[in-house]
């Protein structure tokens, strides 16, 4: 069954959507959309490093994404304007990655597949990385869930309950780097941010609790993955962007219907 490239594509897209869901809700609640972009863009630099040093792409993108997340968090904690730091980091990382890729170009690299994903070329090994990484993200966030939600509601309430919100922030950074490394092959560095926030934003109007929103986000993420792949197949469009288009469509419907329900 896994020998069919379409089956692998579906499994990869669904796996990436499920891995993104538990992190996506926090990205939305904590207003980290730009932060997610900066981290994802750093993955392009990771690809260049992987080629230059002959190390696995997954490991290199994980490392650069994590480094980027920690750097940006450190800089914005130093009194610099978060908006500015993130703007510089997101675009700087992307530009640096593109330059670095052009410099190491030994074997002809299909850059586009890392920018927009190349889901139809997913291998069994990629699938193992996507589902394995997704499982680690799910376990990590599931384990810290109550602490993470409390820290997100109020840092002071977290401290008073004996929770260190700085440590919880590190948990999110680690999970974010994992999701970036996992989803790179599926939607590409440029659209990982979209995969994180759009399903979560679409789930918001129908949720009463954080857990409800998580369930809705996972469900809408999976529907977007399936709908996007179907669209890509029928209209012969690129798969990664089609998945994001499907998610954006769900968001629009949800937003309009949510407004009407109010």
């Amino acid at each position: 069954m896994l020998d069919d490239f379409l089956v692998r594509a579906v499994l990869a897209a669904v796996g990436a959507a499920l891995a993104a869901a538990p992190l996506g809700v926090f990205v939305v609640w904590r207003r980290m959309a730009y932060f997610g972009d900066a981290t994802a863009h750093a993955a392009v630099l990771g690809v260049a490093l992987a080629l230059a040093l002959s190390v696995p792409i997954f490991a290199a993108t994980l490392a650069t994404a994590l480094l980027m997340a920690l750097t940006v968090a450190w800089l914005s904690g130093r009194g610099h304007s978060a908006d500015l730091v993130l703007g510089v980091a997101a675009h700087g990382a992307l530009a640096l990655g593109l330059v670095a890729v052009s410099l190491v170009e030994g074997p002809r690299l299909d850059l586009e597949s890392y920018l927009f994903g190349d889901i139809l070329a997913v291998t069994k090994r990629d699938l193992a990385v996507i589902w394995g990484g997704g499982a680690v993200v799910a376990v990590l966030i599931g384990w810290r869930w109550a602490r993470l939600v409390t820290s997100t509601v109020s840092k002071d309430l977290a401290w008073a309950a004996g929770i260190n919100p700085k440590r919880e922030q590190l948990t999110l950074m680690l999970a974010l780097a994992l999701v970036v490394a996992v989803a790179l092959k599926v939607v590409g560095a440029l659209l990982i941010g979209a995969l994180l926030i759009i399903p979560a934003a679409a789930a918001r109007p129908w949720s009463r609790t954080p857990e409800g929103m998580l369930a809705g986000t996972a469900a809408l993420g999976v529907l977007s993955a399936l709908g996007g792949l179907w669209g890509a197949w029928v209209f012969d469009t690129p798969a990664g962007p089609s998945v994001v288009c499907a998610a954006a469509l769900f968001f629009s419907v949800s937003f309009l219907a949510g407004r009407r329900a109010e």
């Binding site: 939600v149 509601v153 309430l157 929770i163 918001r204 949720s207 009463r208 857990e211």
Partner: peptide, 24 residues
């Protein structure tokens, strides 16, 4: 027991009173 000052929940986070009391 701690009552913080000016706690403001981001509107993107759904939270009922009951769920809030169950945190953490």
């Amino acid at each position: 027991g701690y009552v913080p000052q000016g706690l403001r929940l981001d509107p993107s986070m759904p939270m009922t009173v009951g769920r809030f009391l169950n945190l953490p």
